[in-house]
């Protein structure tokens, strides 16, 4: 069999094209698979925290712990409230005793709870305070969750409606996700021996209820809504007001938006 230079080159090009085709190019997608791939979801959960309304009562933390059956006296919590006190000499004092489960009932700052490295407790004269405020924190349900990316076993994932969940039967408890979260929202659940974190009360929002923290907040500092619905109050706030997110520089695209966030908040 003879082979001319022309046929050799032709066949080489043909062969290269065929070899570069992935097998998946020949796969027929079912309509459900296609829908999932395009992301045609009617719901994308988002959250707005208005820090100007928060008074640090901590009812959200109490409700969260009881609703989600997080051991009440263990120093772990799915949501917490931080207190920031900035003095006139520009020092930042911050604390969150027991995640503010019992609120802030004393002006004494327990800095040990925030690893700020300052004195353990600080008594600040009211005249020294330049500004003081409270910042509720919870899982940001990031669009690009760093915690999910590092999971070696596929135990944590993002649902189609944007909530990051943890499969308790699948988690091996390696702790990579706890380290990867830039916001420190993940912890070990001492009862189930797996990673745990806020999931926007997935059992409540999928039944049409508000999350436990949103319901418990007397001042409307927390709101949850559907970002795919342009008429939703939460979507309206994010679109029309000056909102910011925590640690934008990490590129995780948080879906918890803050009103009135100060630059001292970490």
């Amino acid at each position: 069999m003879s082979c001319s230079r022309r046929t050799l080159l032709k066949n080489t090009v043909k062969g290269a094209i065929v070899a570069s085709l992935p097998i998946s190019a020949f796969r027929l997608l079912s309509p459900a698979e296609l829908k999932a791939a395009i992301g045609d979801e009617k719901v994308r959960w988002g959250f707005v925290v208005d820090t100007t309304k928060c008074v640090g009562c901590g009812f959200c933390v109490k409700a969260c712990k009881k609703e989600n059956e997080i051991p009440y006296d263990a120093p772990i919590t799915r949501t917490w409230v931080e207190r920031y006190v900035v003095t006139r000499d520009e020092k930042v004092h911050a604390d969150s005793p027991m995640g503010a489960r019992d609120g802030f009932t004393s002006a004494r700052i327990d800095e040990e709870t925030m690893e700020s490295g300052g004195e353990h407790t600080a008594e600040i004269e009211p005249a020294e305070i330049a500004k003081a405020f409270f910042v509720p924190k919870l899982c940001n349900q990031c669009e690009k969750p760093a915690c999910v990316q590092v999971c070696p076993v596929g135990a944590t994932y993002q649902t189609a409606d944007g909530v990051v969940l943890i499969d308790r039967t699948w988690c091996i408890g390696c702790g990579y996700c706890v380290m990867a979260c830039p916001y420190g929202v993940r912890f070990f659940h001492p009862k189930y021996k797996v990673a745990d974190k806020c999931n926007f009360c997935y059992h409540r929002i999928s039944k049409g209820l508000k999350t436990a923290c949103v319901q418990a907040c007397p001042f409307g500092a927390r709101q949850i809504g559907n970002l795919r619905d342009p008429d939703d109050p939460v979507t309206q706030t994010i679109m029309n007001e000056r909102v910011s997110v925590l640690k934008d520089e990490y590129g995780t695209k948080p879906q918890v938006f803050y009103l009135g966030l100060d630059y001292t908040v970490k």
Binding site: D102, G103, F104, A132, F133
Partner: peptide
Amino acid sequence: RCHADLGYENSS
């Protein structure tokens, strides 16, 4: 939780 006066005048 709400009614302890902390003296944070610019906070709600």
